[in-house]
Design a protein around this nucleic acid. Structure first.
Lengths: 143, 143
DNA sequence: TATGCACCCTGAAGTCACTAGAGGGTCAAG
DNA sequence: CTTGACCCTCTAGTGACTTCAGGGTGCATA
């Protein structure tokens, strides 16, 4: 299987597949006479795994750990659970942050009654003298 | 005002202030005899504006547009509103994506009953042969 | 046989919004 | 006169890719 086909069936871009090889996430495949990458079923399985984990929002580092765990069939499932649970907690934190942000922005937009810039409530809220948003999470943003 | 003080009052890191100057978001200030940056009130106002907008999740490009609009006092407030509304829509999309992700991940974690890796439901779901998540948003992820 | 076209290759640089580090200079206090 | 906080420039690193330049391969068609 050439890179294009493998990319297609896994809904990955060709460049991304090569990138995964470059960072050691996907082992280098055999090559054809013409120097094309020739993938087998193991590569396909591994790339599918990576894609599914990425779709669930796991970082490449987490994916690497999951792959290691998956290969170590004696290891404890709890390790996988811990990784996933931590990721879930991250997502929950992000959702809370986003919700707060959303409310601040929405109320700003609500206060806009049109007209010229000079009277723009949105800009006013950004300008100095205005109270900074009470729920601002300074310092850490949208990691 | 030296860079450290301005960074402090705007809750920005010194490096970030220099970075904003480097990318042209903040005009280069005067320098003292010792080559220290010497900021005035205009710089402070502009940096505050940038910080507030960033706290609301606007990209640096969007911040640049907002600053341009704020300077063009004849322009229509609708332009600001459009920028903000588009940003709000982005946030809403992100929240929906995150919520979907969260549910998929949570149900995966729920299905984990402990035990050894061989029986790990979480890994099973990632492995080929498993149905890919029905709500996967392939192609665009967590922009 | 030539040519076009889709596909493949490498290596380097660009994206976003910073952050970190090396290696040094300035300035006020003690 | 030294200590220490602060400042300077320049460069490179982060994550997860994407894009680009400059080519090579392989198959079908004129």
């Amino acid at each position: 299987m050439k890179i294009g086909e493998m990319a297609r069936v896994t809904s990955t871009r060709v460049e991304t597949v090569r990138y995964y090889e470059q960072i050691g996430l996907l082992p280098p495949p055999a090559r054809t006479a013409g120097n094309y990458r020739a993938y087998d079923e193991d590569h396909l399985a591994r790339l599918s795994f990576i894609r599914r984990a990425r779709d669930l929002g796991f970082s490449l580092d987490a994916v690497r750990e999951l792959l290691d765990l998956a290969n170590d069939r004696i290891a404890d499932c709890a390790a996988v659970d811990a990784l996933a649970s931590q990721h879930l907690a991250d997502i929950d934190r992000k959702m809370v942050d986003l919700a707060r942000l959303r409310e601040r922005l929405a109320s700003l937009i609500d206060s806009c009654a049109g007209g010229v810039i000079t009277d723009c409530r949105i800009l006013e809220a950004l300008e100095p003298g205005a109270p900074s948003g009470s729920t601002a999470s300074r310092g850490e943003r949208d990691a």
